[in-house]
C-alpha cells in the first residue's frame, strides 16, 4: 500500500479502445447523476508512464492498457473483476448490485468469481468488438476474429500489426530527413 493524495477513486480507461470508451462514457454519465457530484474520476490512461506512477508508484502503463485499473484513495489498486465491482460500488444506480460481490459462501465470493469470469471474457472479446488497440485475440477467439475481419473487410489495425516478422534492408542507404 502506498501513500495517496487522491480524494476519490480514479478509473483508468483505454481511450484507444472503442469498447472501453463506451463503458467509460456510461460510467461517467452514471457517476455524474448522483447528488453531491461524481464519486469517481474517469481518466484516459494517456501516454506518460511517469504521470501514472505519480498517481500510484506500483502502476505500470503497460498493465494499465492490458486490463482495467481503479486507483483507490487509500493507495491501493484494484484490477480486473475487482475493479469492475469497485466501479459499480461507486455508482448510484449499481451500488445495490455491487453488494452481492461481497457475499461469501463457504469462504468464497461466488458472485465476484462470476464477475471475474465475465470480465475476462469481455477483455478477450474486445478485439472482436471493435477495439483497435487491444491487439491479439486469445487462441479460442482467433477463428471468430478472422471471420469478423473478413466480414468487415479490415485485415489490419490502424496502428498495430500482427504480420509475420520480417527483416528488411533499404535497397540503397538513404539519408533520413
Amino acid at each position: 500500500m502506498t501513500e495517496s493524495t487522491l480524494t476519490k477513486p480514479i478509473l483508468l480507461f483505454n481511450d484507444e479502445c472503442a469498447v472501453c470508451r463506451v463503458i467509460a462514457r456510461w460510467v461517467c454519465n452514471s457517476a455524474e447523476g448522483q447528488e453531491g457530484g461524481s464519486s469517481i474520476d474517469i481518466r484516459p490512461i494517456g501516454n506518460d508512464p511517469d504521470a501514472l506512477r505519480i498517481l500510484n508508484p506500483a502502476l505500470d502503463i503497460w498493465d494499465a492498457y492490458a486490463n482495467i485499473h481503479i486507483l483507490m484513495p487509500d493507495g491501493t489498486m484494484r484490477t480486473d473483476g475487482e475493479a469492475v465491482a469497485e466501479t459499480l460500488r461507486n455508482l448510484p444506480n449499481t451500488r445495490w448490485l455491487a453488494r452481492c460481490f461481497n457475499v461469501k459462501l463457504f469462504g468464497r465470493r461466488p458472485f465476484q468469481a462470476i464477475l471475474n469470469g465475465a470480465y475476462t471474457l469481455l477483455a478477450d472479446l474486445r478485439p472482436l468488438l471493435g477495439c483497435e488497440s487491444c491487439g491479439i485475440p486469445p487462441p479460442w477467439l482467433r477463428p471468430f476474429h478472422w471471420l469478423a475481419q473478413r466480414i468487415t473487410g479490415r485485415f489490419r489495425g490502424r496502428n498495430h500489426t500482427a504480420i509475420k516478422s520480417r527483416l528488411t534492408k533499404p535497397p540503397t542507404l538513404k539519408r533520413t530527413r
Binding site: R156, N159, I163, S165, R166, P170, L173
Partner: peptide, 25 residues
Amino acid sequence: RYEIEGTPTLVMYSGGIEVGRAVGP
C-alpha cells in the same frame, strides 16, 4: 516521416542513415 505502417517496428540507424528495419519481430 519514417513510413511506419504498424507497431512495433524497429529501425536501425548508423550515422543518421537507416540501415535496417524489423517489422513486428
